[in-house]
Write a protein that binds this DNA or RNA. Sequence first.
DNA 1: GCAGAATAGTGAGCATGACTCACGGTGTGG
DNA 2: CCACACCGTGAGTCATGCTCACTATTCTGC
Lengths: 154, 154
Amino acid sequence: MIGDRYIAALDQVLELVVLINDDMTRSLARDGLTVSRTHLLWELRRHGPMTQRDLAAALKVSARTVTGLVDGLETTGFVSRQPHPTDRRATLVTFTERGRQTVEAMERGQREFAHLLFAEMPAERFDCFTAGLGEILTRLRGIGLAQQLPGDDR
Amino acid sequence: MIGDRYIAALDQVLELVVLINDDMTRSLARDGLTVSRTHLLWELRRHGPMTQRDLAAALKVSARTVTGLVDGLETTGFVSRQPHPTDRRATLVTFTERGRQTVEAMERGQREFAHLLFAEMPAERFDCFTAGLGEILTRLRGIGLAQQLPGDDR
DNA sequence: GCAGAATAGTGAGCATGACTCACGGTGTGG
DNA sequence: CCACACCGTGAGTCATGCTCACTATTCTGC
């Protein structure tokens, strides 16, 4: 049956999801980080200093959760809270030197990881793989939105 | 720079990981399940009734965690605890009727999902995609073990 | 210019899932 | 038959997530 090949392919995709997740979690733990806290650092890297409110929106998480994440990152010395220059209600979350260096090191690590995954792959297969991946992503983004609508909007 | 294409491909893979994770979490929540509890149900599906100790080993999780997962699944009526026929220390975790039906429904859902992802993809691209995916998985399995050794053995 | 609405952050309290440590009940090998 | 190993779980901890309530501030509309 042809559908079995699809099942097998989906199993492969799911295994990939698990392996990537585990690998990330493990390597982050070595830096004293968690996945959620790293997402926050990444967002900070992309946007520069941000208010916690903006972080909550960017991470699609409640404001309260951001308070907790920043608490943790502040305790472990990756970020610091600065007063907002014009809005005394808000705080600006900024990198410490250690935080900045850690994120830069992670970027280098990611580059190495990408190389390790793809560098030895024949160019033709790489192109075809990314094409297939892109097609799946497009499809997933579509149904992802479709499935969100009935249950919860947001 | 050629490495940028690898980075872009890795970004795609990471986006896939996130999308799949979110999709799974959402659809499981509709059934009153979580990812962890579903892993347990899956293991039960593959092996039949199991002791909690075996479940802990299969899920790569502490025995205490399994107690909590089974507690939850028992409360929501997916599994039940049965006395072990020969070892009075152990309990056998078995499906309830509802649990069995739910898992079977999930299997059908997975089949549909695989179809939805791949059925419209040209055969040639599908073959090439799965080939690339397989290559990456092989590589990841290798380094996954390699990376475990220095940090933690286990 | 000032009252009331909206916004920013956080305390309190809850659920889940992961861990360790300790402990009681049970099985088993010497 | 006794010491040791093993099964499950209570107790306590940590990290994420949530909501609700509250304070402090800012903005708006009259």
